[in-house]
């Protein structure tokens, strides 16, 4: 899902020895995801301290604050579905169906955009702001970080889609879609 996936060894003389079964871009992506996971970890750690360790917090969420559970549920469902359409896009190109891939990508894009739009709408109607107290701070922090990642993902996906429509991927060369 990022731009590290370029074919870096294009024509280096001499060809480097491939000393692992895993290819470099895939491993790189894996490590990148590990690192991102830790960033989420930092946010959850903040959550942990504010909620569990902090002696001043007794009720969570504080009285008068409600989590938008229903909308969040729908939104999660949208996001989960979008991974199926993404999978479909990938399968299509592996089987050589360019149209299938294009449709899959566009659908995924649309769902991601819906997710973000819903989230933004929810933010504006939620009735509290991030500066109100630590509960709202953590709420916006976690959902915001997640939203930002969906946004970055979507941007990269847009690029992949652009390339897909320009005919860049072939059954043999579809790394950009895979990750």
């Amino acid at each position: 899902m990022t731009s590290h996936t370029v074919d870096v060894h294009a024509d280096h003389p001499p060809i480097a020895n491939q000393s692992s079964r895993v290819s470099a871009p895939v491993l790189g992506m894996f490590l990148f995801i590990a690192s991102e996971t830790m960033l989420f970890g930092a946010f959850f750690t903040a959550y942990f301290f504010v909620r569990v360790v902090n002696p001043e917090v007794t009720t969570w969420p504080p009285e008068g604050f409600h989590l938008p559970v229903f909308v969040a549920g729908i939104n999660t469902a949208i996001l989960l579905t979008s991974s199926f359409t993404m999978h479909w896009a990938l399968q299509s190109i592996k089987r050589g169906s360019r149209a299938g891939m294009q449709a899959g990508l566009v659908l995924t894009l649309a769902m991601g955009a819906t997710f973000l739009a819903t989230q933004l709408l929810e933010y504006s109607r939620i009735g509290f702001a991030w500066g109100d107290n630590s509960f709202t701070t953590i709420f916006f922090g976690l959902t915001g970080l997640h939203g930002a990642h969906v946004f970055v993902g979507l941007s990269l996906l847009t690029m992949a889609t652009v390339r897909a429509f320009r005919g860049h991927y072939t059954p043999e060369h579809h790394h950009g879609v895979e990750v």
Binding site: V50, N54, P62, W130, G131, D132, T137
Partner: peptide, 27 residues
């Protein structure tokens, strides 16, 4: 993460580490 939290506390007025808003300093 730690510096982002500080930045948000300062620039956006969030409450990660502000005790008066229920934040936790030692975090």
């Amino acid at each position: 993460g730690s510096q982002f939290f500080l930045l948000f506390d300062r620039v956006a007025g969030t409450d990660f580490f502000r005790p008066d808003g229920g934040g936790y300093v030692l975090g």
